[in-house]
Simulated scan of single mutants.
Amino acid sequence: MALDQTPPLNSLGFAKAPADTRVVVAMSGGVDSSVVAAMLAEEGYDVVGVTLQLYDHGAALAKKGACCAGLDIHDARRVAETMGFPHYVLDYENIFKDAVIDEFAASYLGGATPVPCIRCNERVKFRDLLETAKDLEADCMATGHYIQRMAGDQGAELHCAADSNRDQSYFLFSTTREQLEYLRFPLGHLPSKNDTRALAAKYGLSVADKPDSQDICFVPDGDYASVIRKLRPEAADPGEIVHADGRVLGRHDGVIHYTIGQRRGLGIGGLSEPLYVVKLDADAKRVVVGPKEMLSTRTVPVREINWLGDAPLTSQPEWQVSVRVRSTRPPTEAIIRPLSDTEATVELITPEEGISPGQACVFYDRDSSRIFGGGWIHKG
């Protein structure tokens, strides 16, 4: 009787030795991706580090705390040198501008509240970089994202991170089934960020105490207006601040200075009721304001849906799920009513305030940590 000679699965899920398993690690220069690379290198994997230069290198050098800036490229290279694996820097500046920055500006000017980090993962890291990893004959690509990939009956499943405070599922809902089969997220199971930093110290990495980046990488200090003004100068054109009932209440210096739900800094004092930005009409150069109840939304139109459930989205008339309509909010109970394979109407059991076109609506299983995908909120 012949014995089964199949080797056991390694930590990345392959039936071969780590030394025979090539893994491309997407390295931003931060502590998370650095620890992933160092951990896999110590385990004996054939690690190749890749860092993307996403925007102007000269400008980036002067800005700390931004992903894939000049200083971060230097930090990633130092980690690779410390752990003894090759590291490459790829110039994705044009790809990033076309796929992420231009849409960010157009979306904002269209009265939406864009989430460019999702588009970056979807269109740059998990599309172009993933194809580069395959060109390098890697068995998989690993990232420092806090999310979990688990084996399911229908293939790989996407699950929330063990540490709910670090969970990045909102930004990764558009990861496709095919991409998920190739991706690995070695940090998703860790209890806290402190464990990641402890590993960085253990490996002697220079980035062990490096602070987390807070801003969108190409938006210095969170100043959306200055970035959009450079890309679309017309966005700074002045216009009217109008009440939802039609009254003209004042003037503004450009719709780029306002966001849905904003109350402070409207420059229309002296009114008897508190007013909030309820709509941005970039074409008419109007900022529309109204009472707080106008921000309350129960029905959310969603399109460009990436569905990760086992059965097709349209296989039943409705789905009982939880959804997250903003990255900073917890999931809330909802019902998805599919209109097609990629469009649906989402009914929130409890209305939410400040929901804006351009944000994501991410679907979660009510009874587990599984993510069923999500889509983009639009005006309907």
Rank of each mutant, 00 (worst) to 15 (best):
Y108S: 12
Y88K: 10
T113S: 14
I118N: 15
H87M: 02
V115K: 13
F104E: 11
G84Y: 05
C120F: 09
A99T: 06
F104K: 06
E93G: 02
T82R: 15
G84W: 05
A106C: 11
V79Q: 08
F104G: 12
T113R: 13
V89A: 00
D98M: 12
D102I: 13
R119Y: 10
T82W: 05
A105K: 06
Y92N: 02
R78C: 07
F104C: 11
S107R: 09
E103D: 14
H87F: 00
P116L: 09
K97P: 02
Y108H: 10
A80S: 07
Y92R: 03
H87T: 09
D98I: 08
Y108W: 08
L129R: 04
T82P: 08
R119K: 14
E93R: 12
F85M: 04
P116Y: 06
C117L: 13
E122M: 12
P86I: 06
K125H: 12
L90E: 01
A106I: 13
E93Y: 00
F85R: 05
C117E: 15
A106Q: 13
E122C: 06
A112I: 04
A80Y: 00
T82A: 15
E122I: 10
R127P: 01
G84R: 07
V124W: 02
L129Q: 04
I95W: 00
R77C: 03
R78T: 11
R77Q: 11
C120G: 11
V100K: 04
V115C: 14
C117R: 13
A99N: 06
G84S: 07
I118S: 13
V79I: 08
A112W: 01
P114W: 06
Y92D: 00
R77N: 05
M83F: 02
L109W: 09
Y108G: 05
P114H: 05
D128N: 05
T113A: 14
E103C: 05
Y108E: 06
G110P: 09
L90A: 03
P114T: 07
F126L: 14
Y92E: 00
R127C: 05
L90K: 01
A106W: 06
F96Y: 09
K125M: 15
R119F: 07
